[in-house]
Design a protein around this nucleic acid. Sequence first.
DNA 1: TAGTCGTACGAAAACGATTTCGCTTGCTTT
DNA 2: AAAGCAAGCGAAATCGTTTTCGTACGACTA
Lengths: 343, 343
Amino acid sequence: MPSGGGLPARRKTAPTISDVAALAGVSTATVSKSLNGRTGISPATRAKVVAAAEQLGFRSSAIAQSLLSGRSYTVGLITNDSFGRFSIPVMLGAEDALQAGQIAVLLCDGRDDPIREQHYVRTLAARRVDGIVVTGRRADPRPPVTLDFPIPVVYAMCESTDPRDASILPDDEQGGRLAVEHLLATGRRSVGHVTGPSDFRAVRLRTAGATGALARAGLELAGGAPLHGPWSEEWGRQAATILLRAQDDLDAVFCGSDQIARGVAEGLQAAGRKIPGDVALVGFDNWTVMTDACRPPLTTVDMNLPLVGKRAAETLLAAIDGRASSGTELVPCRLVVRESTRV
Amino acid sequence: MPSGGGLPARRKTAPTISDVAALAGVSTATVSKSLNGRTGISPATRAKVVAAAEQLGFRSSAIAQSLLSGRSYTVGLITNDSFGRFSIPVMLGAEDALQAGQIAVLLCDGRDDPIREQHYVRTLAARRVDGIVVTGRRADPRPPVTLDFPIPVVYAMCESTDPRDASILPDDEQGGRLAVEHLLATGRRSVGHVTGPSDFRAVRLRTAGATGALARAGLELAGGAPLHGPWSEEWGRQAATILLRAQDDLDAVFCGSDQIARGVAEGLQAAGRKIPGDVALVGFDNWTVMTDACRPPLTTVDMNLPLVGKRAAETLLAAIDGRASSGTELVPCRLVVRESTRV
DNA sequence: TAGTCGTACGAAAACGATTTCGCTTGCTTT
DNA sequence: AAAGCAAGCGAAATCGTTTTCGTACGACTA
C-alpha cells in the first residue's frame, strides 16, 4: 500500500470516467451504463462501479456530454434594466424555472447598449446555448436581437417588434382595471389617476384599463384626464394638489407607481384629507419598500414579475423542445389590499 | 448551381470546422490555424479559409475548445440576497470584470438555503467551472461552501469563516469615519448616531468608525451611545424624537442607512428643526431612490458595490491564473455630498 | 455432447476543435 | 544536376463521455 493511502491523492484535474473504470476494473462503457441506470449491467458490477465513483468523487463532465449530445443545457439571459427593480424578479423567476429543467443560466448585462448586446449574442452562440431570454424595461417594443443561427429567443418584460417572436408581458391593462374595480367595489365614485410619462406603453395601458372599468360603471376620470409626470414622489405631491383643485369631491386616486402613490398620499394629507377615510389610494408595482413606508400602508397592483420570468422560461423550454410559440402572452396582475383602501 | 444557391441552406445544427474545411478545400488543421492567427499558413490559403468561414457563419464551438483545454472559461455566481439591493450591483460589477476577461457567468440564486447552494455547487462542478463567486448580505461571516474538488472561491459582500478564503467587503468602518469627519469638517460638534440592529457586523463597524473619528476630535456620540433599531423609516422617525429629547443641542445625525436617514429627516422636521440649518444629516448606501426623495437630498456614504464585485472578479481571475490570495480585502467607501450637509 | 439462446460486458466510433509532427513541394545553393 | 532546406499543409491523436454493436460465456435443451 502506498504511503498515505487513506485519502485519495489531491489531484489538479477532476477524475474522469477512465479513472473510475480502472479502479472498478471494468470498461468506461460499463461505468457509463452503471451510473446512468442503463440495463444490461449485473447488480454486482453496478455496485462496484458506484463504489469506485463515490471513492473518487467522480462527477460526469457536462462539457463532454454537451459535445456528444449537441446540446449545452444552458441558456443566455440578457438583461437591460441595470436599475434592476423590475428585471431582477423576472430574472430570478426565470432562473428558478430553468434550473428546475436542468438548465443553467448565463448572465449577460446588456446595459441597453445594442453593441454590447450583439457582443453577448456572439458569445452565447459560440457557447452553443439552447436558447436566449431577453429581459428589460422599455417604453416601447424593441428591435429583435439579430442572430444568424436558429435558436429560440423569448422576450420577458419587453416586446419584440417582430410579431413572430414570443414575448411575455404583465397585463398592464388588466392591472389598471383591477385597481379601479376595487375602488368602485369599495364605494368610491370620483377616481383620479396620477401616473408616469405618457410615452410609456405600460402607462397608456394601465390608463386604458382604469378608464374602461370606470366607463362600465358610467363614470369617467376625476379631472377628466390622467395626470402625467415623472416617476417620482415629488410629482405625486404636486399632482395631489392639482387633483384636489380640479375635483373637490375626490374620493380615490389610482397611481401609476407606488412611488407616485406615496407622494400623492403626502400631498393629500398635507391638504388635510384622511386616507382611506376621505380618499382611497391604490399604487402599482407592490414595491414593498414604498408600500410599507407609506402611511397608511398602500394597496397596490402586483405584476407577478417572478411569474413573468417563469412563463418566459417555460415558453423557452417548450421552444427548445420543438414546441415553439409566437406572439405576446400577458401575465395577469394581482391586487394586494392594504390599509389605504380599507372601508 | 443548385436552386436557391444564393443563400446557404437553413441548417438545424451550427456549421463545424469540417464544413469550413470542405468548403475551402483544406484540412481542419489548416482552418484552425488560419482562423486563430497561427503561423505557417500562406496569405492566400488564409483568405480562402476566412471567406469560407464567413460564408457559413462559422463560430468555433466553445464546448469543444473547453473539452480540449480542460477549462470552461466559466465561473459560477452564487447569490444569496434575493432582495437584491446590495448584491445586484456587486453581481453586475463582477460580471463586467469577468466578461472582460472572456469569462462567462453562470447565475445561481442560492436563496440563503444551504441545501440549494450545495445543489448548485454540484451543478457547477459538473460544468467544470473555473471558479466560484459567492455574494450575499449577511449579519456575520458564513461557513464556506464545501467542495470536494480544488477550484478557487471568492466571497463578495460576505465573509467566509475560514481565514484562508478570499473575501471582499466594503470598508464599513472607514465609511463611518468618512461620514463623521465630513460632519466635523463642516463645523458640527454634537453628532447623534441612528442605525440598524447591533447584530449586524456592518452596523458595529460603522459605529466604530464614527466614534473613532469623534474621539480623535475629543468628542463622543450625542446621547452617549448609538440608537439601534430596525432598518426602517419608521424607526428613523422615532429615533429623531428620542435623540432630541436626550440632546437638545444636537446639530448632526449619522444614520446607518438612507432609509433610516429619511425617517430621521422627517422626525427632525416634525420637531421644527431645519436641515441642514439646524441639523446636518448623513446616510449610508447611496440608494438614490431614498437620497433623492429625501427633502433635502441626502448626503450619504456609497459602498462602491460595483467595485466590490470587480475586485472579487479580479481576485478570482488571479486565483484561476495560479496567483491565489487569501484573507479579507476591504474596498473603501466614498462620500457623496448633497444638500443635507451643506454649510 | 453439441447446439442455441440470452445476458453481461468491452471495443470502438462519435461529438468538434487544437496541436504535434511528418510529408510533400518547390526553391536555392553548390 | 543533385542535395539541402524551408514553407505550407495534412494525418492523427487528444480531450471525456455515450452508444452501438460485437463477443464471450454460462446455462439450458434436445
